[in-house]
Write a protein that binds this DNA or RNA. Structure first.
Length: 892
RNA sequence: GGGCGCUUAGCUCAGUUGGUUAGAGCGUCUGGUUUACACCCAGAAGGUCAUAGGUUCGAUUCCUAUAGCGCCCACCA
């Protein structure tokens, strides 16, 4: 016999182990079943499981279990990401702090990589065991890591292919330099932070120089003006027409000499500042582009003011080696001393911050590798397109669907603004760029060419370059990737998994990585494989605190630790709580009471099962009994009908990825239909074990994707259940003819009696006589007389078609049936009278509205017949009810 | 500056071809030792569906504007 409370801890790990050990999660590439594949978004190999992972794992596990039960060859492929910058900086920090190594890079490239790899190996185990804790039914035999040899091969092959197609090129550009981490980052990794800054306006050119008035320039970064090469004005700006095309020597503090040419460009805003922009090509992307457009007119060459380490370069006299901040302060001092500072106003500034280090980024000119997103060399559907165009095309043509669809707009908008993607990073942890140099010679390939003197590029690839291949690089057979004579196409053809499982069906992840990852996968995969990476993208929202705040690692009080919650309430409860009320694209608040609520739900299922299993034991049931359709009560038919409806609703909701809706339907069915009514109705002596078995069995199957552990445990106690629940096929409705109206009416009668009892303060334990004049429904109620006696605590039930109205009884009307509780002395007659009057008044208001509606010609003419008929019926019923209530009132 | 979303009961949220007197869970209140479950049972109270217009026989649902909150994008130096 099952214990009275479900203790998740006792069962979960054991059940997971059995699933895994018996290969329940394993997909078969040779099966005839249609594939259903989800590539698990790989958590960072260094990470610890947080709620973001939990919600992803819960949603994906529900999807995959549902499809597995529906007869698909379901593959959920797990793995981890080497998370280049994130991992390297964590390890460097650890080395500094715990081992006292001041400059971990001094260990040398090989040694440092080794240390990082060791660290990763350790933390991978953590994340793996935590994924298991969530009950994720992923195929561990296919686990991949973005640094696996086979994935490395794919990375190199794609790089080479893109290089040969001219889509990857090397160029000097102004890029985003993360001073703290000493590497470039991509445009998408730059965040903007609003900060109170100062706008300095100062005299740039004297009146003598302009031959007119002094020329003022406004800037928030005065120090960069030490390296200006031009002054830009709007072509229509009347104030500066006479200066356009001229150039001036400017002598700054410390003896720094520059030459600036005045250029005209439409991008300059006449209204802002003085309408003049100092152009520093090497420290601003905008300025760089300005310079590119006007290169020919500008006399001076660009000057690099700031160095990689964030200090002033040797090109700036008087400030060499200073920090940017010091340089700014001193230069401002100098301007003031020279009486050239006109104003200093505070104004809100958009500070560029690195997503990785959270430190300011410095735009710097650097020689880097880029992916060209505009070059039309990609063949797609027989047309030559650019990478951008393919990315747009697959979503526009609905080859890929994004849920919710509003994110498609966001996606298109992002592509419209997309510029060439900087893919090289100056860190050591990652896929090293497969390019070799020997003097002026450049070679792109897996290994260095024959001969001496070849040196590999020092840089590594952006981590998203490799994760962009995730849906398919994980399906390439590692056994064949060692063979370097094979082409990329050979690798596709030779990999059974790729052939069976790609394109994948579902990519589920948080909307915050739509650009970083989803878009990159579409870009990389359409190009490399000629296939889309996935058919559907499901974007879940962020988990927030009860107050709606972001949970942040730096403020542990705001965080809920999923492992804590699992420990306290069980995995199933956590899963339910994260999935119900969670709709795609919308953030969701999670708090402990909610999780507790779903713990109660798992316990409810446990106890309902305990009850049913107890009946089976008592009656010696050892096999699934067959339902005798000739011998069903109203309640049996009702619950079968309800179950059928539930199966359909849950299945179609899950098929449409409406996870929350499916969960709610099942919650409601178990608690409100099965437990509150069917089990209560089964407490007499007319238990139908076959129906109980049928319904419980189906409940377990239906709930299994949501709460896999408790359902699997109960399943193991179900007499005659074969194998594990995880393998059970999804139910289909059976005996669909049953309608359940009699029981619906019975429920309303019982509820009404309970209501009258409560309203009239009749002690719950006391059994009372009840009179029902049920008119046409008399026979129907008679069949279930005993249930009314028991469920409504009735001592004596007078049930007949009609009769005399008793004096001073509590009374009401349900479905045209008249109810009376005639006990003198029990009922407070004044109160009951008042209650009746109130109800009549309420009904009359309702009637008035209905009559007005039906009296409205336009309504009758325009509304569909079914609606009009419905309203008429309502009117009839309400009128009849009012009439009866009035008669009852007359008894007082 | 551009774009997107949200606003429904005290709290957290559901609610799609526009048509029941708008729903759930938690909380609150009144009761409860009923042959599973107090992690429970029975009953109740609680909403002008942000505001103002419009379309319609009919609007929580569609349109427009406004307000508040939030998010994303962007070369006002």
């Amino acid at each position: 016999m099952l214990p009275p409370a479900y203790e998740a801890k006792k069962y979960e790990d054991k059940i997971y182990k059995t699933w895994e050990d018996t290969g329940a999660f394993k997909a078969d590439a040779n099966s005839d079943k249609p594939p259903f594949t989800i590539s698990m978004p790989p958590p960072n190999a260094t990470g610890v499981l947080h709620l973001g992972h939990s919600v992803m794992l819960a949603l994906e596990d529900i999807m995959i279990r549902h499809r597995r039960m529906k007869g698909y060859e379901a593959l959920w492929l797990p793995g981890t990401d080497h998370a280049a910058i994130a991992t390297e900086s964590v390890v460097i920090k650890n080395l500094k702090e715990t081992e006292g190594i001041k400059n971990p890079r001094s260990l040398g490239r090989e040694k440092l990589i080794e240390r990082i790899a060791q660290y990763v190996e350790k933390s991978q185990d953590t994340i793996r065991s935590q994924i298991r804790k969530m009950g994720a039914s992923c195929d561990w035999s296919r686990e991949r890591y973005t640094m696996d040899q086979s994935l490395h091969r794919c990375v190199n092959e794609v790089f080479k292919k893109m290089y040969e197609d001219g889509l990857i090129y090397r160029a000097e550009r102004v890029v985003n330099w993360d001073v703290a981490l000493q590497t470039t980052i991509s445009d998408d990794e730059v965040e903007y932070e609003e900060k109170e800054g100062t706008l300095y306006t100062f005299e740039y050119l004297s009146a003598k120089q302009t031959g007119d008035k002094p020329l003022y320039v406004a800037t928030s970064r005065p120090e960069t003006k030490l390296g200006d090469t031009a002054l830009a004005v709007h072509p229509d700006d009347k104030r500066y027409q006479h200066l356009i095309g001229k150039d001036f020597d400017v002598k700054w503090a410390g003896g720094q000499m520059i030459n600036v040419t005045v250029i005209a460009d439409h991008t300059v805003d006449m209204e802002f500042g003085t309408g003049v922009v100092g152009v520093t090509p090497f420290h601003s992307k905008t300025d760089y582009e300005l310079w590119q457009r006007h290169k020919a007119e500008i006399k001076a060459d660009p000057i690099q003011v700031i160095d990689e380490d964030g200090t002033i370069t040797g090109h700036i006299k008087g400030y060499v080696g200073m920090t940017v901040q010091d340089c700014r302060e001193q230069f401002v001092e100098w301007l003031k001393k020279e009486k050239r500072m006109k104003s200093e106003e505070s104004y809100p500034q958009q500070l560029s911050i690195s997503y990785r280090s959270k430190q300011p980024i410095e735009p710097l000119p650097k020689l880097q590798w880029f992916i060209d997103v505009n070059k039309k060399t990609v063949s797609w559907n027989g047309q030559l397109m650019s990478l951008k165009e393919v990315m747009q095309e697959v979503v526009r043509a609905k080859k890929i669907t994004i849920i919710p669809d509003r994110f498609e707009k966001t996606y298109f908008h992002w592509i419209d603004n997309l510029q060439d993607w900087c893919i090289s990073r100056q860190i050591w942890w990652g896929h090293r760029i497969p390019v070799w140099y020997n003097g002026d010679e450049v070679f792109v390939g897996l290994d260095a060419p024959e001969g001496d003197g070849w040196k590999q590029d020092e840089d590594t690839l952006d981590t998203w370059f490799s994760s962009g291949l995730w849906t398919w690089s994980t399906l390439i057979d590692p056994a064949i990737t060692e063979d370097n004579t094979l082409s990329l196409d050979d690798l596709f053809e030779g990999s059974a998994d790729f052939q069976k499982f790609h394109p994948t069906q579902m990519l589920e992840t948080g909307y915050d990585i739509l650009f970083f990852w989803i878009a990159r996968m579409i870009l990389m995969t359409t190009y490399a494989t000629g296939q889309i990476p996935f058919e559907t993208v499901y974007l879940h929202g962020l988990i927030r605190t009860r107050e709606g705040k972001k949970m942040s690692k730096s403020d542990p009080a705001t965080c809920i630790d999923p492992l804590d919650m699992i420990d306290k309430y069980g995995t199933d409860a956590l899963r339910m709580s994260m999935v119900i009320g969670n709709t795609p694209g919308n953030d969701m608040r999670l708090y402990e009471e909610k999780i507790k609520g779903y713990r109660n739900f798992t316990n409810k299922l446990w106890n309902a099962s305990r009850f049913v299993l107890g009946i089976f034991e008592e009656k010696g049931i050892s096999e699934e009994p067959a339902i005798d359709t000739e011998n069903l009560t109203d309640a049996d038919e009702w619950i079968i009908g309800k179950l059928n409806k539930t199966i359909k609703a849950a299945d179609s909701a899950l098929t449409d990825y409406k996870i929350s809706e499916a969960g709610q339907v099942l919650y409601d069915f178990l608690w409100n239909d099965f437990c509150d009514w069917y089990l209560e109705l089964s407490k007499g002596d007319k238990q139908n074990t076959a129906v109980l078995y049928h319904v419980l069995k189906n409940i377990l199957i239906l709930l299994h994707p949501f709460i896999p552990f408790v359902t699997e445990e109960i399943w193991s106690h179900l007499p005659g259940a074969k194998g594990m629940l995880i393998h059970e096929p999804y139910p289909v409705p059976q005996n669909e003819k049953y309608n359940h109206v009699p029981i619906t009416r019975l429920i309303d009668v019982v509820t009404k009696i309970r209501y009258l009892r409560a309203e009239n303060k009749i002690e719950p334990a006391r059994k009372i006589p009840v009179i029902i004049y049920a008119h046409a429904k008399t026979n129907e109620l008679k069949r279930n007389e005993e249930d009314i006696l028991r469920l409504a605590r009735v001592s004596e039930l007078t049930l007949q078609e009609t009769g005399e109205k008793p004096d001073k009884a509590a009374a009401d009307v349900v479905h045209g049936m008249e109810l009376f509780i005639p006990l003198e002395g029990l009922v407070d007659t004044d109160k009951e009278k008042e209650r009746l009057e109130k109800e009549i008044k309420n009904l009359e208001g309702y009637l008035k509205g209905l009559k007005a509606k039906l009296g409205n010609k336009k309504f009758v003419e325009n509304a569909p017949d079914a609606v009009v008929e419905g309203e008429k019926k309502k009117l009839e019923e309400a009128e009849e009810k009012v009439e009866k209530l009035k008669e009852q009132l007359a008894q007082f």
